[in-house]
Design a protein around this nucleic acid. Sequence first.
DNA 1: GTCTTTAATGATATAATATACCATTAACGA
DNA 2: TCGTTAATGGTATATTATATCATTAAAGAC
Lengths: 132, 132
Amino acid sequence: MQQRNTFQKAMTLDAVIRLANHPTADDVYDYIRDKYPQISRTTVYRNLNKLVDLNMLARVKVSGSADRFDHNLHPHYHFICTECGEMCDLDIPYLEQINDMAQGLGGRKINAHQIMFDGVCEECLKKVTNRQ
Amino acid sequence: MQQRNTFQKAMTLDAVIRLANHPTADDVYDYIRDKYPQISRTTVYRNLNKLVDLNMLARVKVSGSADRFDHNLHPHYHFICTECGEMCDLDIPYLEQINDMAQGLGGRKINAHQIMFDGVCEECLKKVTNRQ
DNA sequence: GTCTTTAATGATATAATATACCATTAACGA
DNA sequence: TCGTTAATGGTATATTATATCATTAAAGAC
């Protein structure tokens, strides 16, 4: 028996999908605790790790703050707002060729790349405009 | 008086330059403590933050591990080895145009982007080869 | 349906990274 | 040399995450 299906694990995956916008482990924990208060934070962290290992979720490591979890498994890039911290996917094509550029330098094996854009999101731009 | 020159701050900048390959705050702390054992870890963290604010150092945020500090202030990309954790600069051209691609999606202001490559570094490739 | 095995859970302790706070020290202009 | 106050160093604390372990429960065997 390799892997058991617990409702805690199902709830963890479900929470990441429902929270949609790249929740942190604690976002997921808070979301689940609303419905199932006896869930342990450890269980949430553990299940998020398991789901990443199983390639059912992706982990996105961010600037100083906590890891975020992504149910979008296709290669894609992220934007993070430096004002509010919100992260979103960016619908621009995946640049296979830049792995080749890096591989072309030689001396190492390139496996993958991540691109993180930063700036100010639509909501925060509105707030700045309203302030003026 | 806005800013004072202390030798602790000078040692902090010097350590990042000498350690060269993107040291963490604790790498810098350990390096300085060798010569000046009474340095406080708080002072190192504080001075690293100040030097980043003064644009004399760049902060590189990495996958789960501690922040790293970079004395190379020109825009460039990084590679991190998934085996040993070593980080290095990659000498490929900076892609101004991908900010435009992202900006072209509209709805937000794009300020910058970072690219992190991962894979296996030259040293770790040798180790793998020798093992076989 | 019951038993058995053991993966998974939940609670607590702890690790790693980083900042907050504050009394003391020392940089630097007057 | 003095006075102001930025910077230091020490301690406490916050945040994120994992380790440990007794207990619970999932799922295959019967």
